[in-house]
């Protein structure tokens, strides 16, 4: 009996050890490209093209970053990305709160029809809208190669509206009755009561929007045609086409392009993963 217990414990330990080994192997595969990118970014050209490869640079060689920064207007790209992502996020949060409130707490003519129409847009792949939107922006609005083209169409997200609506629905109506008795208007009630109570939901919507806007590629590729308006991903892709196989500057530029998003992710990780699982499991 006692022996059996010992065997059991040993088995259990071996089992756990196996799990750790597998998980660590997987982690190495996942993390390795990042390591290799950073390592390459700090190597001079003669250490990059080596076989067998050198795992670490002999010294920190910053010239790749300078070369990349000077070869393309990355300063402008970063400014554009920050500007577009920030304005889009603020505007989207504002409009999303308004629309989500109407769907969650108001009774109005055509509510169900609109609700289904909004829901239906989630079935439309954005790729289908590229050509018509290109025509609208180029011909009707004359917004090609402007910030308007990069910001305005993304100020509303149906996904955000439904996510926030779920949050708003959980807030009891008694709060509104009480606020109304105290003479509080609808608009003020929304911003001083509903919004603070739904902070996690709003943070999720904002976070997704910011990252989505920062990573947007095809739309920006189509809607811009000068370095003045390009964002980081598009600038990076164009730099790649020009730089060819100069991996030092290429990896330096990639490191710079990843940095803001990875930092944002590390600081908001919990929120982010919660947001992903919540929205994932609901739909």
């Amino acid at each position: 009996m006692k022996k059996e217990g010992k065997v059991y414990i040993l088995q259990r330990r071996a089992y756990l050890l196996g799990i750790y080994v597998l998980l660590i192997l997987g982690t190495i595969v996942m993390i390795f490209p990042f390591f290799w990118m950073i390592s390459t970014a700090f190597k001079p050209a003669n250490e990059i093209q080596l076989m067998p490869p050198k795992w670490l640079p002999s010294r920190f060689y910053w010239q790749n970053f300078a070369d990349a920064w000077n070869a393309a207007p990355f300063g402008r790209y970063f400014f554009n990305s920050f500007f577009v992502a920030t304005v889009t996020t603020i505007g989207e949060v504002f409009f999303t709160i308004l629309a989500a409130y109407a769907f969650a707490k108001m009774d109005f003519l055509g509510k169900n029809v609109l609700f289904i129409a909004f829901l239906g847009t989630m079935m439309i792949p954005g790729e289908m809208l590229l050509v018509p939107n290109y025509l609208t922006i180029a011909r009707t609005l004359h917004w090609l190669d402007t910030y308007y083209a990069l910001i305005v169409p993304w100020l509303v997200s149906v996904f955000g509206i439904f996510l926030l609506r779920q949050f708003f629905l959980t807030i009891p109506d008694e709060l509104w009755d009480a606020a109304r008795i105290d003479g509080c208007g609808r608009f003020r009630y929304l911003w001083t009561v509903m919004v603070p109570l739904s902070r996690p939901g709003i943070a999720t919507v904002a976070l997704f929007k910011f990252i989505g806007s920062w990573n947007a590629f095809l739309w920006v590729l189509i809607m811009t045609n000068s370095d003045r308006m390009r964002t980081v991903p598009v600038g990076l892709a164009i730099f790649r086409a020009e730089a060819g196989t100069e991996y030092g500057p290429l990896m330096a530029a990639s490191t710079m392009a990843m940095l803001p998003i990875l930092l944002l992710f590390f600081f908001t990780q919990k929120q982010f993963i919660q947001g992903i699982t919540r929205s994932g499991l609901k739909s």
Partner: peptide, 8 residues
């Protein structure tokens, strides 16, 4: 960002 990851 997929562009940067693809570069790697």
């Amino acid at each position: 960002p997929s562009i940067a990851a693809s570069m790697v």
